[in-house]
Simulated assay, not measured.
Amino acid sequence: MPKTKTERVTISLCPPVDLGGEPGWIPFDAPSLVGESLRFVSGEPDGNRFRARYYRDAEQHLHARIWFGPETEGPPGHAHGGAVAAVMDEALGLAAWAAGYPIVVGNLNVSFRNMLPLQKVVTVESRVISAEGRKVMVHGRIFSGETVYAEAECLCITIPGK
């Protein structure tokens, strides 16, 4: 028999997580720099996909605390490689913007080192390695303690006229 009522699915949100930075890190308002382009990873600060908070250190390098929620699952209990790559894309591209280079990502190479458990807060560190002409190279890694989950190299291309 066909159903005539609309069924609602209730999704319960995971509890809050501490995305606080290290001593000396200064909170960085990433959306004010690049606008709505941060929707994919950073767009739901209390959601079940990603939760992210960005910081800068004394040398002006960009750092982040990222939480990979249950909606980022790939292998059982672990973050999907595409979710890890999405975080690297956002964080490394944002590092170039924060350093004064309005860019788009031209090439992103991610090396996966360890499986990243879900619902774990990890640190992302990134830094601009070089800038020559329109090419800006940014390196970064996702880690917690001594465990490195992913490392990435990002070739960014500056946007003409920006």
Score class of each variant (00 low, 15 high):
residue 123 T to L: 10
residue 133 G to I: 09
residue 84 V to P: 04
residue 99 A to W: 03
residue 82 G to W: 05
residue 106 G to T: 04
residue 128 V to N: 09
residue 138 V to R: 01
residue 115 M to W: 12
residue 121 V to M: 05
residue 90 E to K: 01
residue 133 G to H: 11
residue 129 I to S: 11
residue 114 N to K: 11
residue 91 A to V: 05
residue 110 V to W: 04
residue 135 K to N: 14
residue 93 G to V: 02
residue 117 P to N: 13
residue 83 A to H: 09
residue 130 S to K: 15
residue 112 F to R: 06
residue 96 A to H: 01
residue 116 L to K: 05
residue 140 G to M: 04
residue 132 E to A: 13
residue 79 A to V: 11
residue 136 V to D: 02
residue 78 H to G: 07
residue 149 Y to S: 08
residue 115 M to S: 11
residue 125 E to Y: 04
residue 141 R to I: 12
residue 116 L to N: 07
residue 129 I to E: 13
residue 88 M to E: 04
residue 126 S to F: 03
residue 121 V to A: 07
residue 136 V to N: 02
residue 91 A to I: 02
residue 100 G to M: 08
residue 118 L to M: 04
residue 130 S to Y: 14
residue 142 I to K: 03
residue 133 G to P: 12
residue 99 A to V: 06
residue 143 F to Q: 10
residue 110 V to M: 08
residue 99 A to D: 00
residue 77 G to T: 06
residue 134 R to D: 15
residue 129 I to M: 12
residue 118 L to C: 05
residue 79 A to G: 08
residue 80 H to C: 04
residue 86 A to M: 05
residue 85 A to E: 03
residue 76 P to L: 14
residue 139 H to P: 04
residue 151 E to Y: 08
residue 112 F to C: 09
residue 83 A to C: 15
residue 131 A to M: 11
residue 106 G to H: 07
residue 127 R to M: 14
